[in-house]
Computed example of a mutant assay.
Amino acid sequence: MSQPANVSQILSKYSPCDVSDGMAKHGLDGSLPNLLQYSGPAATVAGPAYTVEFALFDDPRPEVQYIDSVQKGSVLCIGLDKRLQVSHAPYTLVNNALYGGLMSTRARYLGAVGTVVFGRIRDVKEHRELEYPVFAYGTGTAAPRPAVKPVALNKPLEVYVDGFPSGAYATISPGDTIIADENGVVRLPASLPQSTVDQILDYIPRRVRADELVAQDILAGVGAISAQKDRRKGL
């Protein structure tokens, strides 16, 4: 199950920081940390997750082909088997890039709105020339083979985050809404009750407007703490 398409359209107007604030209001943490934006415009990417898992090349699971079935409007999310993830930079044991310029060329043609790679990428110049948004932990020069291969498509993807209050892993499920920009990446789970999603969507623009007023107050000489307390009252 995925969020309705209009959820992605609404959230594309806001930053991942705004979405995180909305989720925090309900005790939720959707942060997917340590990712950097390598290409694409300075605008928010929002769409349902289309997940791909890579594992070691000798993994008994057969290799799957994923790039020609990327769905229009989706955010391609590529991760590694849990055994290949580590808690410190660069957060992966794999030096090979999982994703390159030809993959962005195809994803963009099929209508994907961005790609998030929980690992390394290559061909940064190509991604930038395409003006296609790509987020990753880092870069590498070698292709995936012979180190790793894609083994699972549109299955839950576990990503090491190791932070409070998320715990050690976050699970990205197909259809979760992914929101990303130069600040980072956030996921809004598709499993949330619609009533909670509606409350988050209602809160975000009110919080954004309140913070705009806080900024105006600060520029007018009001203390930051006082301005925040006053403008955020009742949110």
Score class of each variant (00 low, 15 high):
R120T: 01
E182A: 05
L188E: 01
Y137C: 02
L93V: 08
P41R: 10
P41H: 03
G234N: 10
L84C: 00
P156D: 10
P146V: 05
V124Y: 02
P193V: 03
A152C: 06
A168V: 12
Q9S: 15
D176A: 02
T51M: 05
P62W: 09
S39R: 05
A136H: 02
R122M: 10
Y99C: 15
G140Q: 10
D217I: 00
G40V: 05
G184T: 02
C17K: 11
P174T: 04
E131P: 00
G119N: 02
R206Q: 15
T92V: 14
V208L: 10
V161N: 08
D81T: 05
V208N: 04
V75F: 06
L76T: 03
I172L: 12
L102Y: 05
F54S: 00
L35T: 00
S69K: 14
P33K: 01
S195Y: 04
A5F: 07
G22R: 03
P150A: 03
Q3A: 14
Q3E: 08
H88S: 15
N34A: 15
Y50G: 07
T177G: 02
Q228S: 14
D211R: 13
L110I: 13
A168T: 14
T44V: 01
E129F: 08
L98R: 13
A49R: 06
G140W: 06
A49M: 05
D176R: 06
L98M: 13
F118V: 07
L56M: 09
F135W: 07
E53G: 00
I218Q: 11
E53T: 05
Y50D: 13
A227F: 07
Q65S: 15
Y132F: 15
F54C: 01
A89G: 08
I204W: 04
K25H: 13
S173A: 12
Y66W: 15
T141L: 14
A180N: 01
P60Y: 10
K155Y: 07
I78A: 09
A224Y: 11
A43T: 14
A55F: 06
G30P: 02
H127R: 02
A5V: 11
K125I: 10
F164W: 12
R187K: 10
A136N: 01
G119H: 02
S15W: 13
D217G: 01
L76P: 04
I10K: 10
G101I: 02
L153Q: 07
Y66M: 08
A55K: 12
I218C: 12
Y160W: 00
R108T: 09
L36D: 13
G101A: 02
G73C: 12
L93P: 00
I78W: 06
G175L: 01
L76V: 13
L219W: 11
L201P: 00
P174G: 03
R232K: 12
K155L: 08
V64T: 14
V124L: 11
P133E: 00
V197N: 13
R232L: 15
K155P: 00
R128Q: 15
L102S: 12
Y99D: 14
A152E: 11
A55M: 09
D59R: 07
A112L: 10
A49Y: 02
Y38L: 06
G163Q: 08
A42K: 04
S12M: 03
V116C: 13
D198Q: 12
P174K: 07
V19N: 09
V113F: 11
Y50C: 07
V134N: 02
I204E: 09
D202K: 14
A43W: 00
Y14C: 02
V134L: 00
N96L: 04
